[in-house]
Design a protein around this nucleic acid. Structure first.
Length: 341
DNA sequence: AAACTAGTCAACCGCTAGTCA
DNA sequence: GTGACTAGCGGTTGACTAGTT
C-alpha cells in the first residue's frame, strides 16, 4: 500500500518546538470546531504544520484536561503496578491515570522509575528481582517480593526528606478496612450492589499514600468510564462484572461486629476495624443495597469465620484472570504497607 | 567563564489498525 | 477486495537545561 505523506516538505511545513502563537491558533480552532479532521486542520487553522504534529501537540500538551507537574507517589505506584500488568502499553497505563498522557508516562518511566528499579535491583521489564533467588524471603510468594520491592522504591523515592517512613495509624486502619471491603466485594460482588461498595471505597478507600478521591459509577465491565480516578481498589471494582441486583440484609452493626473476626481488622494497630471505616451513611448505603437474602448473609458470615487464618481461597466472581491477579497484587501490597517488616 | 556531560521531555518517525468509498 | 485516509501507538531523537569539571 502506498501512502501519501502526511507532511509535504515542499509546502514548507514547520517542525520543532511550537510557539505560543501557534498554540493559540490551534487551541482557538479546536475550541470552535472540535477535534478531528487533523489532515485538513492546519490549513484551516492557519498553521504551517502537518496534521499529525497538530494532533500530538493537542493530545500531549494543550488539551485542557491534562494534569501537569510532578507525579505523586500514588501515581508512581499506579504506574509500576500497571506496567507490571501491561508492559510498555503506555496508552493502557495512561487510561489508569486520568490527566496524564501516554507520552508523559513513558518519559517518566524511562527517565525516573526505570532507573530506580535498576538501582534497586529490579528488572524493569519483568518486575522481578535481579538479585539471586536465595536472597528472597523463602516463604513469600513471588508477588509479595515484587510488591515489597515496589514499596521499597516508592518509599526511597529520593532518599531525602520525603520518606515518611511510617504510614499513620489512621491509614493502617483504613487499609485494613479497605482490604476487608475488597475481599467482600471480590467474593460477593455479584450478590450485592457493587456500585454502593464502589462509592464507599471510592469516598475514602484504601489509599496507599495521599488521598485520591474517586467516584466510581460504572456498573459493568462494558462500561468503562473514561473519567474515573484511579486507585487500585476503585480500578479493580471498575473491572468487575457485576450488576446492581443486591441481595441480603443486615444491620450495620453486623458488619462491624463480624469484622472483628477478620484478622485483617484485628491486625490494625488501633483495632478500629470495619466500623471505624464505614460511617453511618455508608453503612446505610451498604445495608440498603442488600435485599433480603439469607444465603448471602450466611455465606458472608461463613467467609469471615473461615478467614481467621487468612487462608480461605477467594474465588473470583468474574471471569478475567488478569483482574484476579491484580487483586492479589493489590492485597500483597496492602499487606506490606499494613505490616511493614 | 567556557567546555563538557548527563538528564529531561516535547516532538518526531515509522508503523499498524480501523474505516470508508 | 483494494487503496486512501485517519487515528493512535511505541520507540527514538534532539533541543534545551542544569550540573560538573
Amino acid at each position: 500500500m502506498v501512502r501519501t505523506p502526511c507532511c509535504k516538505p515542499e509546502l514548507g511545513l514547520k517542525k520543532g518546538a511550537w510557539t505560543p502563537e501557534e498554540d493559540q491558533k490551534l487551541i482557538s480552532y479546536l475550541n470552535n470546531h472540535g477535534e478531528g479532521g487533523w489532515r485538513t486542520l492546519p490549513e484551516k487553522a492557519g498553521l504551517k504544520r502537518c496534521g499529525k504534529s497538530c494532533r500530538l501537540r493537542w493530545a500531549n500538551y494543550l488539551r485542557p484536561d491534562i494534569k501537569r507537574g510532578e507525579f505523586t507517589e500514588d501515581e508512581e505506584l499506579s504506574i509500576i503496578s500497571l506496567h507490571a500488568l501491561h508492559g510498555n502499553k503506555w496508552s493502557d497505563i495512561a487510561r489508569g491515570l486520568p490527566g496524564r498522557t501516554d507520552n508523559e508516562i513513558k518519559n517518566y518511566w524511562n527517565t525516573h522509575i526505570k532507573k530506580r528499579l535498576i538501582k534497586k535491583g529490579v528488572d524493569p521489564v519483568t518486575h522481578k528481582s535481579l538479585i539471586s533467588e536465595t536472597s528472597k524471603s523463602e516463604n513469600l510468594p513471588e508477588i509479595l517480593n515484587n510488591q515489597n520491592i515496589i514499596q521499597t522504591i516508592i518509599t526511597s523515592k529520593d532518599d531525602l526528606g520525603n520518606n515518611e517512613n511510617v504510614k499513620n495509624e489512621a491509614n493502617k486502619s483504613r487499609l485494613s478496612s479497605a482490604r476487608f471491603l475488597n475481599r467482600v466485594a471480590n467474593r460477593f460482588g455479584k450478590k450485592i450492589n457493587q456500585r454502593v461498595i464502589s462509592e464507599i471505597i471510592g469516598s475514602g478507600g484504601p489509599l496507599i499514600t495521599t488521598t485520591t478521591t474517586t467516584s466510581v459509577t460504572v456498573d459493568s465491565i462494558s462500561d468503562k468510564s473514561t473519567s474515573f480516578s484511579f486507585t487500585p481498589t476503585s480500578y479493580l471494582l471498575n473491572q468487575m462484572t457485576v450488576n446492581g441486583n443486591g441481595n441480603a440484609t443486615s444491620p450495620p452493626s453486623m458488619f462491624s461486629d463480624s469484622s472483628v473476626n477478620d484478622p485483617l481488622m484485628c491486625r490494625s494497630v488501633d483495632n478500629i476495624g470495619f466500623s471505624g471505616f464505614l460511617n453511618e451513611q455508608h453503612a446505610m448505603m451498604l445495608e440498603e443495597s442488600c435485599v433480603e437474602n439469607t444465603e448471602f448473609m450466611n455465606e458472608l458470615t461463613r467467609f469471615l469465620r473461615e478467614d481467621v487464618n487468612n487462608d480461605v481461597e477467594v474465588t473470583p466472581v468474574y471471569e478475567y484472570k488478569d483482574d484476579f491477579e491484580e487483586i492479589d497484587n493489590y492485597f500483597a501490597c496492602v499487606n506490606l504497607l499494613t505490616n511493614p517488616t
